[in-house]
Amino acid sequence: MPILEVENLSVSFKKYTRGFKQTKSTVITSLDVTVEAGEILAVVGASGSGKSLLAHAILGILPSNAITSGVIKYGGEELTPARQSVLSGKELALIPQSVNYLDPLMRVGSQVRTSVKKENAIAAQREVFQRYHLNAGVEKMYPFQLSGGMARRTLLATAMVSGARVIIADEPTPGLDSVVIVEALNHLKESAVNGCAVMLITHDIESALQVADRIAVFYAGTTVEISPVEHFNGNGEQLRHPYSKALWRALPQNDFIPIKGSQPRPSQLPSGCLFAPRCEMATPDCEQERPAMRNLRNGMVRCIHAT
């Protein structure tokens, strides 16, 4: 049974345009994704496709002008704002994208200790620092004294000591050198093997392939495909959605061939399939309505033509 389920999630923001006039712009539309215990689900896709917002929606830390609809379930029960505030940081942990998430006025050692649930917080913090090659002096430092890579390792350490059952890692690797990246990914894998559910949000498909079990592809605020990791190989013949195929082919290690156009803006979403304006396979049917997510070959796809 999936430990975390997201069904038909939509997120929109209220904005003031002029005076008291409000507009609503929808940034996530009908998004579905599930994560099971013991697996790593990688979430990849264009920047601005709503990957980070999904993470924030799960933890209930969206800005106050956000309106969400749809259901998020944790352990089979709906994750209400009340449950979110109890569970976040304990059973649900976020490795945030920006190193600005550290408290600037608190020594990093103490920050990491606050998330330890076991008896001996100091020992746990020292152990995890050692694992991430942060030497003993670092625990007494303030965030501004750390390099970008050290700050990011501190964020990783915080999530790792929390003993959470769901870890959401939002772009945990940029700015780290390749040795530390491999190590960080291995730690995520280890957590998954020990029964955690891990959601790895990244635009680095290469590293997602190394550790993930399944990959969810996002486009313009929705999931277009969920595929087992093995299907990302060759020329992408086994992939289901035309966007995933295009994304795969555009990688420098593959064909490096781009498709035209850019992701639609939230305010100007097409009425039918969100990818139709850039899709080679598009037919008039695609413009009629948004395709629903359907099961296909051990994965899921949101495209009426996919086979």
Partner: peptide, 14 residues
């Protein structure tokens, strides 16, 4: 193009 997705990266480089 480090911050960009693969398709945008390939577009710009082409």
């Amino acid at each position: 193009t480090t911050m960009l997705d693969a398709i945008t990266q390939a577009q710009i480089w082409k």
